[in-house]
Every structure is written in structure tokens, then in C-alpha cells.
């Protein structure tokens, strides 16, 4: 079953068009990697799916429903979880308060009951338990990233959008985050669309990939059928 469908999606910043007729599908339960050089529109595409960036053309369907005209909070409530680039934790709120804001996505959902911050979030990121009363703005990059993922999970999403979750984070924490992402897939069954610069991780994590260039998807395929080295020339400078 297709969970997310983009049909001829376009986006622009003022007069300059950034996304050109993007067609993309994400299967329920899949992990899909979005790769490409800097400035090709990966972040814009993720923002457009989350509703932070407006689509100027095309359609977005989620779970069979057309959400093209739905504002960001409506998409979150439909089950799209978002971990933005640069983490964007609320700096003056504590870790616990940040996680609580994530519960806003549960408003008006029939399938899920609100029961506070689910324990599996602290199970995935034990570090958050120790620092739950600290202001998020004072945390390290790795801690903020774990918080941003935990916060999105608090809303019990069906699809998780991750924008470079390991960017600028020290290597040992990167491994923890990658391990947590695998568990989110296998244990929680959350579908994942991830923007990722490290091809090695993208290949070991996702089963499908899309390469973007100049606002278009120029190549798509299965990570099982092709090797990362075949497309590395499209990504590396």
C-alpha cells in the first residue's frame, strides 16, 4: 500500500522555482533515502511534505487522503512526523516540554489515545531521561537531535520525515542515532523518508533511493539491486 504519494509537486521561493514536478511514492513500512548534493531541493521537498513550505503545484496524498490544501498542523495530525534540518528544538523549553509539544499531533486522532510521553521514547533514547528538566537550547547537538526525533515520535506518526539526522554530530552519537532509527522501523513499524548525505548508511538502512538534482528527481531505484558506488558520482562533488 502506498502511504505517501507526490504527484507533479512544485515549490518556489518567491519567483524562483525550487521543485520541478516531483513524482514520488513511499510504500507503507518502507525506508526511503533522498540523496543529492547541497542545494538541490531535498530540504524543500521534506518541508513541503510536512507543510512548512507551500506547494505551488501538484498533489500530496497521504494514506489515500488528499492533503495538498491541509496546513502543517493538519498533516502532523494525519500522521506525518517531522524532524527538521538543524533539529529546531524549542530552545527555552525543557526536554520534557519539547516532548509534550509533540503530543499536539494526537489531537483529534481516533486510532490513538493520548497517554503522555510513551515510555518507548525514553527506551530509544535513554539519555533524554537524565536531562529531561534541562533547557533544550543548552544541550549538545547529539542530544538535541535525539530530542527532535523523540518529539516527533511523541505524536505517534505513521511516516517520519528525517532531514540529515546525523549532520554535525560526533561519531559515537551518530551510531546511537542510527541504531535508534533501525529500531523505530522494526519495532514501531514507522515508515521513514530520510535525507542522508552518507551513502553507506543510506544503503544499509533504506531499500529505495531517490537522487535529486536541480529540483528534480533524476534517478530512483532499489538499494538492493544497485551498489552505492554506482551513483556516488551523482552525489559527491
Amino acid at each position: 500500500m502506498k502511504l505517501l504519494e507526490l504527484q507533479a509537486a512544485c515549490a518556489a521561493y518567491g519567483q524562483s522555482q525550487v521543485l520541478w514536478s516531483i513524482d514520488m511514492e513511499v510504500e507503507q513500512g518502507a525506508a526511503v533515502a533522498l540523496i543529492g548534493r547541497n542545494g538541490v531541493g531535498k530540504t524543500t521537498l521534506l518541508n513541503a511534505i510536512a507543510g512548512v513550505q507551500k506547494l505551488t503545484g501538484g498533489h500530496l496524498k497521504f494514506g489515500g487522503e488528499d492533503l495538498t490544501a491541509t496546513p502543517a498542523h493538519g498533516r502532523a495530525r494525519a500522521g506525518i512526523g517531522f524532524v527538521p534540518q538543524g533539529r529546531h528544538v524549542f530552545p527555552h523549553l525543557t526536554v520534557m516540554e519539547n516532548l509534550t509539544v509533540g503530543l499536539a499531533a494526537l489531537a483529534g486522532r481516533k486510532a490513538v489515545k493520548e497517554s503522555g510521553i510513551a515510555s518507548h521514547i525514553f527506551d530509544l533514547f535513554p539519555k533524554l531521561t537524565q536531562i529531561k528538566n534541562r533547557k533544550a537550547g543548552l544541550l549538545s547537538g547529539g542530544e538535541q537531535q535525539q530530542l527532535a526525533i523523540g518529539r516527533a515520535l511523541a505524536g505517534q506518526p505513521r511516516l517520519l520525515l528525517l532531514d540529515e539526522p546525523t549532520e554535525g554530530i560526533q561519531p559515537n552519537v551518530v551510531q546511537q542515532i542510527e541504531a535508534a532509527l533501525r529500531r523505530i522501523r522494526t519495532e514501531l513499524g514507522v515508515t521513514i523518508l530520510i535525507v542522508e548525505q552518507y551513502l553507506d548508511f543510506a544503503w544499509s538502512f533504506a531499500e529505495a533511493y531517490h537522487v535529486m538534482q536541480r529540483g528534480r528527481i533524476i534517478r530512483s531505484g532499489s538499494t538492493a539491486m544497485e551498489s552505492a558506488s554506482e551513483i556516488s558520482h551523482l552525489v559527491n562533488i
Binding site: 512548512v52 502543517a72 498542523h73 502532523a76 529546531h88 524549542f90 509534550t100 509539544v101 499531533a105
Partner: peptide, 22 residues
């Protein structure tokens, strides 16, 4: 109040998390 503070600090992110900022 928590939603007010969240929108105050980062409106787009709060909206993307399900807060009806309007």
C-alpha cells in the same frame, strides 16, 4: 501555555508538530 511558548519560539516547527498556530 506550552503551545503559546512553542509557537513563540519556532512557529513553523510547532505547526509541523501538530500545534494549530492560528
Amino acid at each position: 501555555g506550552l503551545y503559546v511558548r512553542a509557537v513563540n519560539q519556532d512557529r513553523p516547527t510547532a505547526a509541523a508538530l501538530g500545534v494549530n498556530a492560528r
